Simulated scan of single mutants.
Amino acid sequence: MFYWMLLVLAIIFEVTGTLSMKWSALSGSASGFYIMLFMIGCSYLSLSIAIKKIALGVAYAMWEGVGIILISLFSLWLFDESLSAGKLFGLALLILGIALIKIGTRSADPEKEEVMQ
């Protein structure tokens, strides 16, 4: 459970960093870029610890996929960006892809594999 919480933190850090980059670009303030650097660094650190127990493909797919979904939704709300039918379809495919990767990933833990068989 601890490693899944780290993955959630990595996603939150990534989303926060990316949104602060956009905010900084729009406002002209350099502080957003420093926040972005810190948050992205924290995101990679959290992700690197999370993949000790979570399959890399699953962790990366969730980190990027959930991050993209959240960034798209927050961009819609915070920056008045549009969400076209094509973007919605792409986000739906992204969710489906993440689910399929999670379902299709076998456990790296031999004890878990024995229980599953």
Rank of each mutant, 00 (worst) to 15 (best):
L56V: 15
Y60W: 06
G97Y: 12
E113S: 12
A61C: 15
A108T: 11
S48K: 05
G90S: 14
E64A: 11
S82H: 06
G67C: 02
S107M: 05
M36N: 14
G17F: 13
M39T: 07
A85V: 14
G90H: 06
I54W: 09
T18I: 09
S46G: 05
A25L: 09
S72V: 14
A108L: 07
R106T: 14
L37D: 05
F79H: 02
K102T: 13
S31R: 07
I51D: 03
Y44D: 01
P110H: 05
M116P: 01
S72R: 10
G90A: 10
M62C: 13
A25S: 07
A55I: 04
S82E: 11
M5T: 06
A50D: 04
E14C: 08
I12V: 15
F89N: 04
F13A: 07
G65V: 02
L56Y: 15
W4T: 00
Y60K: 02
F89I: 14
A59Y: 03
L7C: 02
S82R: 08
L19C: 01
L9T: 11
A85Y: 13
M62H: 01
D109M: 08
L78R: 00
S72L: 05
M39K: 06
G17C: 12
V66T: 05
S46W: 00
G57V: 12
K53P: 10
D109G: 10
G41R: 12
S84G: 10
M62T: 12
Y34T: 04
T16L: 00
L93R: 08
L83K: 06
L76W: 14
I11V: 15
A25T: 06
L83Y: 07
A92G: 09
L19P: 02
I11L: 11
W77Q: 06
A92H: 07
L37H: 11
V15E: 08
I71F: 05
L37F: 15
G86C: 00
L100D: 09
V66R: 02
V15S: 08
A50T: 13
G86K: 06
L96F: 12
K52W: 03
K102D: 08
L70T: 06
S46D: 03
G104P: 08
L76R: 10
F89Q: 05
I69P: 00
L9V: 09
F79T: 06
S27H: 01
L45T: 08
I54M: 06
W63L: 02
K102W: 14
F74D: 00
E81P: 03
Y44Q: 00
I35L: 10
G67Y: 02
T18C: 14
Y44A: 00
K87N: 10
A92F: 11
I68E: 09
S46A: 14
M39R: 08
F2T: 15
E114C: 04
K52P: 01
L26A: 05
I68R: 01
L47H: 00
G104E: 06
K53F: 03
I12N: 04
L70M: 08
G86I: 07
A50L: 11
M39W: 09
I68N: 04
A55M: 10
V58M: 15
K102E: 14
R106P: 07
I103F: 15
Y3H: 14
I49P: 03
